[in-house]
C-alpha cells in the first residue's frame, strides 16, 4: 500500500485516495473551438510510461482535494506531491 503525502493533510495511506489519471492533460477551454484531433487527444490518448509519471489523486477519505503525485510507475517510488495549482518539475 502506497504512502502518499497529501499537501494539505500529510502522509496518508493509499486507502484514503482514489486515482485520477495523467495530471499533465489539459482540457481544451470551454466555449472555444477545438479540432477533432485535439479533442480526441484530450479524451482518449494517454501515455503509459514506465518510470516517472505525474498523476492526479483525490484525497477522497480526507480533505477531498485533488492533488498531483509524481510517481515511478515501475517502482512506485513517489518523488514529489503538490497541490494542483503548483508545478511539479
Amino acid at each position: 500500500m502506497l504512502y502518499i503525502k497529501c499537501p494539505y493533510c500529510g502522509l496518508r495511506a493509499q486507502k484514503e485516495f482514489s486515482y485520477g489519471g495523467d495530471a499533465t492533460v489539459k482540457r481544451p477551454n470551454i466555449n472555444e473551438e477545438v479540432s477533432s484531433e485535439d479533442w480526441d487527444n484530450f479524451v482518449y490518448m494517454r501515455k503509459s510510461p514506465r518510470g516517472k509519471h505525474i498523476e492526479l489523486w483525490q484525497h477522497i477519505a480526507g480533505c477531498r482535494q485533488w492533488i498531483k503525485v509524481q510517481r515511478d510507475t515501475a517502482t512506485h517510488e513517489i518523488f514529489q506531491t503538490a497541490k494542483v495549482t503548483e508545478e511539479i518539475r
Binding site: 485520477g20 483525490q58 477531498r64 485533488w66 494542483v84
Partner: peptide, 12 residues
C-alpha cells in the same frame, strides 16, 4: 468527485 475535479483543476 466529478464536480470537485472541474472546480479544483479545470475551472478554478
Amino acid at each position: 468527485s466529478h464536480l470537485e475535479y472541474y472546480l479544483q483543476i479545470v475551472w478554478p
